[in-house]
Design a protein around this nucleic acid. Structure first.
Length: 292
DNA sequence: AGCTCTTCCTGAAAGC
DNA sequence: TGCTTTCAGGAAGAGC
């Protein structure tokens, strides 16, 4: 499931092979995950890919103004969200087409940029060149760039559970279920704690944990659970370093207690019941562990 | 404001 | 064995 490290891995791969190349045609399969498929197929041909960038979990392809004959004389951004099972990469036309490949961008050198997505939870949309700042502002801060002061400010006073806030892309962009759990385990904070109740030492620990976890995961080219592979088709390694996610019943790497799973913020959440102390109310009612 | 539930979708795994 | 049910989850929307 692509979160920040997986998307970063894909982006780094694409960055070495896409910039400078021009889209000559677009072929579409199923389009229910594309905002305006007809406009996409019409407006992209003739445009050159200038840069490839990650914005949270979105991949941004910055496209030039293109040939005036075919398209409005304005730069466009193609935004791709990989959802749960999305993949974006470059192949040659003779390479076998993976099942559930729904978009082909034919490039001027004959290669194809392909989008594959089994469950089609991904998204594809265009954003005008002058709207990209507004789009970026609609997302939260990059967790790898945020200062300690901003991090505290974003969470201070919030009465939602910390796990819910970590997953909220308007608060921080790019963190998903796996890295939320890994960061909370690292910081020794229970996912059901209310953000407003976290002490500043805990917030500092959490920010550092998020940075450490994401940086290590990027270095390992992401976590491959089920389907993730990078732009070249290689799986990541970070799943071997998971300390909480997916480890229900297995011993905590710190204290040996059995990792528990509970639903927090509507998501499977894995944590150590010994190292990550439950908030008082959840402990009293058994709520944090009630729904398993 | 924030929580829960529902929807989208497919394939793997569990249940019968 | 083979069919049916359940589950996983990012994001958005409804309703409370």
């Amino acid at each position: 499931m692509p979160e920040l490290p997986e998307v970063e891995t894909i982006v780094r791969g694409l960055r070495t092979v896409l910039p400078g190349h021009t889209i000559v045609s677009v072929r579409l399969g199923k389009t229910d995950f594309i905002e305006e498929p007809l406009a996409l197929a019409e407006l992209l041909p003739g445009r050159r890919i200038e840069t490839v960038e990650r914005l949270g979990k979105f991949i941004r392809l910055q496209l030039n103004a293109g040939s005036a004959a075919k398209s409005p004389d304005r730069p466009i951004n193609l935004l791709v969200h990989l959802g749960m099972t999305g993949w974006l990469g470059v192949r040659r036309p003779e390479d076998p087409v993976a099942p559930h490949t729904h978009v082909f961008f034919e490039l001027e050198d004959g290669r194809e940029l392909r989008y594959t997505d089994i469950r089609r939870f991904g998204q594809m949309r265009m954003v005008a060149g002058d709207q990209i700042d507004a789009f970026r502002d609609s997302l939260g801060q990059e967790p790898l760039e945020i200062s300690a002061g901003e991090f505290h400010k974003r969470l201070a006073g919030r009465r939602a559970r910390i796990k819910a806030l970590l997953l909220d892309q308007r608060v921080f962009r790019g963190i998903g279920n796996i890295y939320a759990d890994e960061s909370l385990w690292q910081a020794r904070i229970h996912p059901a704690r209310l953000a407003a109740r976290l002490h500043s030492t805990e917030l500092g620990r959490l920010r550092q944990a998020i940075r450490r976890v994401l940086q290590h995961a990027i270095a390992d080219r992401g976590s491959s659970i089920a389907t993730f592979v990078d732009a070249e088709g290689q799986p990541g390694e970070y799943q071997q370093r998971h300390r909480a996610y997916g480890r229900e019943g297995k011993p905590c790497f710190r204290c040996g207690a059995k990792i528990r799973r509970a639903i927090v913020a509507g998501r499977s959440s894995y944590f150590c019941p010994h190292c990550q102390t439950a908030p008082r109310r959840a402990r009293a009612s058994g709520k944090a562990e009630a729904r398993v």
